[in-house]
Design a protein around this nucleic acid. Structure first.
Length: 758
DNA sequence: TGTTATTGTGTTTTT
DNA sequence: CACAATAACA
C-alpha cells in the first residue's frame, strides 16, 4: 500500500516515538492512537535493531492484513536502503507465517507440505457433509452456525471436548462436539487446514517443542527444527495487537519465548471482537510480561483538528476504554460535512460528482476513498463512479475468488497439488459436465468412507463401487486428465499452467458453446483470473502454484483495473483500518446501516460499532464527508433512514453548516498530563458536552430537483454570472431558488431553472 | 442424468 | 433483491 499523498510527518521522531524505538531489555507495549505514527515507530525500531547488529533473520514482524505487511516491508526497505538484508526479516500476517511454518514443519501433525488452506466456502462444504452424516436437524444446525462455534473454540485454543468453556448449552454442545471432531478428521484426511487451524496447529507444534524432550517423542528430540525456532527470534514486533485472540497471543508469546517482544495497539480501534479478538489481550499484556514498559502516543500527525474533534466526540461515549485523547498542532482545517440525500443512487451520484470535479481540478484519484459498512452498499457506488468515468479499485468485495467459475478453476489447481482434498475434487469431477452425475459421486464417496481413504484414492476402483462401464470410462478419462495436468505443474510457468487448465479441462469450451450472456461474463472473469495470475507472477518471479494458491486463499483480492494511482478506492470500514486518505467519504450513515441493525440491542457490540466509526473518521487527512439517505433499499424494500447516532454525536462547531456559521477556533486541545492509566482502573472521559439534535441536521438536507442531487458546496453555472457555489436554497419545483456565491458578483439568489449543474 | 422453474431464504464485518 | 437449494421437467 503506497503512502497516499503528503503527510505532515516530522523528520525527527517525537520523544515518545523515540522512547518506543529505543527501549530495550523488557517487553514493550506501545499504546498508539490513530495517526500517531505507529507504523513509523515499528519500522524505525526494526531499522535500529538492524543497525545495532541484530541479524535480519532473527527479527519477526507480525501484522493482521497482508496490506499492512506489504507496507511495513516496503517502509523498512526504504529506511534501510540496501544497508541490510531486509529480505531475511520475517514480515507477515499471523496466518501467512503459520502457513509457512506448517508447510515446513507440519508433517508430524499429518499435514504434507502441499496441504490445502480451506477458505470459508470450502469449510462450509465440508461441514455440510459432516452434518448430513450426523443426521441432525438442518434447521437447528446450519453449517455456518456450527462452524461459528468451532471457530470461537479454536480462537481460544479449545478442542471438541472443551466446549463447556464457551457456555454452549446442552443439545447444542454435544452436537457441535461431534461435528467438530468429524470435521477435523475430514480436514486432516484431505490434507487441509482452515484459517483457525493454521494458528491451532502451529501453536500445537510450538507447545510440543517447548515440552521436555522425553515427553515430546522421538522425532522432536535432538536437533529438532521447531525447537530451534523457539530460539530463532531475538525481537518480535506485533502490530494491531488489540485485534489478537487468545490463541494468537499464545502464539506470539511462544515465538517470542527467547525474544524481546514489542506490541503496538489501540484499544479504541478494536473492531474484530466478533472474530474472537479480545481487547483483554492488550489489557493483560503487562500482567503476562513482567516489567513491561508502556509508551503512549497521542500526538496525531494525520488529520486536521476538526476531523479529530469529530473522532473524539464519537469515541468518548464508549465506557470501557483506556482514555486517550488525540491532539494535533495542524490547525482546524476544513469543517466536516454531513449531507443527507433522498436515496442511495443520489448518494452515489453526489460522491461521484464531487470526486469527478476534484480530479478535473487536478486532484489525483488515489487521494480519495469511499467507505461503507457492508459490501452490499458498494454496487451502486461503483456504478456511479464508473458512469462518471472514474477508475475504481474495490478492496475485498463480493469476492471475486468466490465466484463459481473462479472457484472451479482454483479447485482444479488445488487438486493438482493435493488430490486428496475431497471438497475440491468433488467440486470439479463434473465441471464442466462430463457425465459424472450425483449418484456416481455419491457411490464413490461412500466407497471412500468405507475404505477410510480419500475420494481420489477410490477413483481407479470405480468398478468396485458398483458403477456401470460407462461411468467407469468417464472416471478413467477424468483421472487421465488430472494426471496429464499434474505432469505439467513443474514443467510450465504459473500463468501458462492456469491457461492450460482452463483449456484442457474443456472449461473454456463449454462456456463458449453456451454462448449466453452469463457465460460470457464468466469467460471474462476467467480472463481476469489469468490476468491476476500473470500480475502475481511478474510481482513474484518464479512463484510456484503453491504460492499462488496461498495468495488467493489468504490474501483475497482487489477488484479493478488500471494503475492504482488512477483509481478511487472503495472498501468497507473494516478493510480501511491502518490506511489513510486525503479525502474520505463515509456513506450510509444511518441507523440500522451504521450502526448495523444487528447490534442495536447489544451494548457491547454497539461499543465495537462505535470504535468502527472512530476508525472510519480517523482515516481522513484533510477532508471528511459523511452521507446519509432518507430511503434505502434493504431486502429489496424501501426503508426510511434515520441519521446514525454517530452523526448526531458530532460537535456542531466542527461541521459545515448550510448557513456558513462563523467557524469556531478550538482545536482539540493538548490534554492535561495524566498519570498513565495503564493497568489501573479504566479512565472515563468527562461526559460529552455538545452533540447534534436530529432537527439541526435540516440545514444539511440535500434535495433532488430534476434528478440532480443538491448539496451545499456544489457548483452551478449561470449564463451571465458564470460558476457559483451553492450556499443554500428555498422553494421547490419551478419556484426552487438557489443562494449562490459567485467569484465576481458575490451572493445572489437565482431561480434554479436559470442554472445548470456543472 | 442434466437442465430449468420455482420457491424459499436470508445479509456485518475477515484471515 | 439476489442467490441457493429444491422440485419438476426433458
Amino acid at each position: 500500500m503506497p503512502c497516499y499523498g503528503w503527510a505532515p510527518v516530522p523528520v525527527v521522531l517525537n520523544p515518545e516515538q523515540s522512547a518506543a524505538v529505543a527501549h530495550r531489555g523488557s517487553a514493550l507495549l506501545v499504546l498508539a492512537g490513530a495517526g500517531t505514527g505507529k507504523t513509523r515507530v515499528i519500522t524505525h525500531r526494526v531499522a535500529a535493531l538492524l543497525d545495532e547488529g541484530i541479524p535480519p533473520w532473527r527479527i519477526l514482524a507480525v501484522t493482521f492484513t497482508n496490506k499492512a505487511a506489504e507496507e511495513m516491508r516496503a517502509r523498512i526497505d526504504r529506511l534501510c536502503e540496501g544497508r541490510h538484508a531486509t529480505k531475511e526479516i520475517w514480515v507477515g500476517t499471523f496466518h501467512s507465517i503459520c502457513a509457512r511454518l506448517l508447510r515446513r514443519f507440519g508433517q508430524p501433525l499429518g499435514l504434507s507440505p502441499h496441504f490445502t488452506i480451506y477458505d470459508t466456502a470450502d469449510s462450509t462444504a465440508v461441514m455440510t457433509k459432516v452434518l448430513e452424516a450426523l443426521d441432525v436437524s438442518d434447521k437447528l444446525f446450519t453449517p455456518r452456525g456450527v462452524l461459528g462455534w468451532i471457530d470461537r473454540a479454536k480462537n481460544r485454543g479449545l478442542g471438541p471436548g472443551e466446549l463447556d468453556a464457551l457456555g454452549v448449552i446442552e443439545p447444542v454442545r454435544s452436537v457441535v462436539a461431534k461435528a467438530f471432531a468429524a470435521y477435523q478428521a475430514r480436514l486432516l484426511a484431505a490434507n487441509g487446514a482452515d484459517f483457525g487451524d493454521l494458528i491451532v496447529h502451529t501453536v500445537a507444534l510450538l507447545r510440543a517443542a517447548a515440552r521436555p524432550r522425553e515427553t515430546a517423542g522421538q522425532q522432536l528430540a535432538g536437533d529438532d527444527p521447531v525447537r530451534a525456532l523457539l530460539h530463532r527470534f531475538q525481537h518480535v514486533v506485533v502490530d494491531e495487537f488489540q485485534d489478537t485472540n487468545p490463541l494468537q497471543a499464545e502464539l506470539v508469546d511462544r515465538l517470542a519465548s527467547h525474544a524481546e517482544l514489542c506490541v503496538v495497539g489501540d484499544d479504541d480501534q478494536a473492531i474484530y471482537g466478533w472474530r474472537g479478538a479480545d481487547v483483554d489481550q492488550i489489557l493483560r499484556f503487562a500482567d503476562r510480561h513482567r516489567g513491561t514498559h508502556v509508551v503512549r502516543l497521542e500526538h496525531n500527525y494525520r488529520s486536521t483538528g476538526l476531523i479529530l474533534r469529530c473522532a473524539d466526540a464519537v469515541i468518548r461515549r464508549n465506557a470501557g476504554r483506556l482514555g486517550k485523547t488525540l491532539w494535533t498542532d495542524a490547525g482546524d482545517g476544513d469543517p466536516v460535512r454531513v449531507l443527507e440525500l433522498p436515496g442511495e443512487r443520489e448518494e452515489a451520484r453526489l460522491v461521484a460528482h464531487e470526486i469527478r470535479h476534484a480530479i478535473d481540478d487536478g486532484a489525483s484519484p488515489d487521494q480519495f476513498a469511499i467507505f461503507y459498512r457492508t459490501h452490499a452498499q458498494s454496487r451502486v457506488l461503483e456504478d456511479a463512479l464508473r458512469t462518471a468515468g472514474l477508475g475504481v479499485r474495490i478492496v475485498g468485495g463480493v469476492a471475486f475468488y468466490e465466484r463459481a467459475e473462479i472457484k472451479d478453476i482454483l479447485s482444479y489447481l488445488v487438486v493438482l497439488l493435493n488430490p486428496d482434498s475431497d471438497a475440491h475434487l468433488g467440486r470439479i469431477l463434473n465441471r464442466p459436465a462430463r457425465g459424472i452425475g450425483n449418484t456416481t459421486i455419491d457411490r464413490l464417496a461412500a466407497l471412500a468412507t468405507a475404505r477410510g481413504t480419500s475420494l481420489w484414492q477410490v477413483l481407479p476402483a470405480a468398478r468396485e463401487a458398483g458403477l456401470g462401464a460407462a461411468a467407469c470410462k468417464k472416471i478413467a478419462g477424468f483421472v487421465a486428465l488430472i494426471e496429464q495436468l499434474r505432469e505439467r505443474v513443474a514443467a510450465l510457468p504459473l500463468d501458462a499452467l492456469v491457461a492450460e487448465v482452463v483449456e484442457r479441462t474443456g472449461y473454456r469450451e463449454s462456456l463458449v458453446l453456451d454462448g449466453d450472456e452469463e457465460s460470457m461474463g464468466r469467460l471474462e472473469n476467467l480472463q481476469e483470473l489469468l490476468g491476476n495470475t500473470e500480475e502475481f507472477l511478474s510481482e513474484h518471479p518464479g512463484a510456484t502454484l503453491s504460492d499462488w494458491l496461498e495468495q488467493t486463499s489468504l490474501v483475497g483480492g482487489e477488484r479493478g483495473e488500471g494503475p492504482r494511482a488512477q483509481a478511487v478506492t472503495m472498501m468497507t470500514v473494516h478493510s480501511a483500518k491502518g490506511l489513510e486518505f486525503d479525502e474520505v467519504y463515509l456513506t450510509g450513515m444511518e441507523e440500522r446501516v451504521f450502526p448495523h441493525a444487528r447490534v442495536l440491542e447489544d451494548p457491547v457490540q454497539m461499543e465495537e460499532e462505535r470504535r468502527l466509526a472512530y476508525v472510519a473518521i480517523t482515516r481522513a487527512r484533510r477532508k471528511l464527508t459523511l452521507t446519509m439517505v432518507a430511503r434505502r433499499r434493504i431486502y429489496g424494500q424501501l426503508q426510511p433512514g434515520t441519521p446514525s447516532r454517530f452523526v448526531l454525536d458530532l460537535p456542531r462547531e466542527a461541521l459545515a453548516t448550510a448557513a456558513a456559521r462563523p467557524r469556531p477556533q478550538p482545536v482539540v486541545e493538548r490534554p492535561a498530563p495524566r498519570t498513565p492509566a495503564w493497568n489501573e482502573d479504566v479512565v472515563y472521559d468527562a461526559a460529552p458536552e455538545i452533540a447534534l439534535e436530529p432537527d439541526e441536521l435540516e440545514g444539511f438536507h440535500a434535495e433532488v430537483d430534476g434528478g440532480v442531487a443538491l448539496f451545499v458546496g456544489m457548483h452551478v453555472r449561470h449564463k451571465d454570472f458564470g460558476i457559483g457555489e451553492l450556499v443554500g436554497w428555498s422553494g421547490a419545483g419551478r419556484q426552487l431558488k438557489f443562494n449562490l456565491r459567485f467569484a465576481r458578483v458575490g451572493l445572489k439568489t437565482i431561480l434554479a431553472r436559470f442554472c445548470e449543474p456543472v
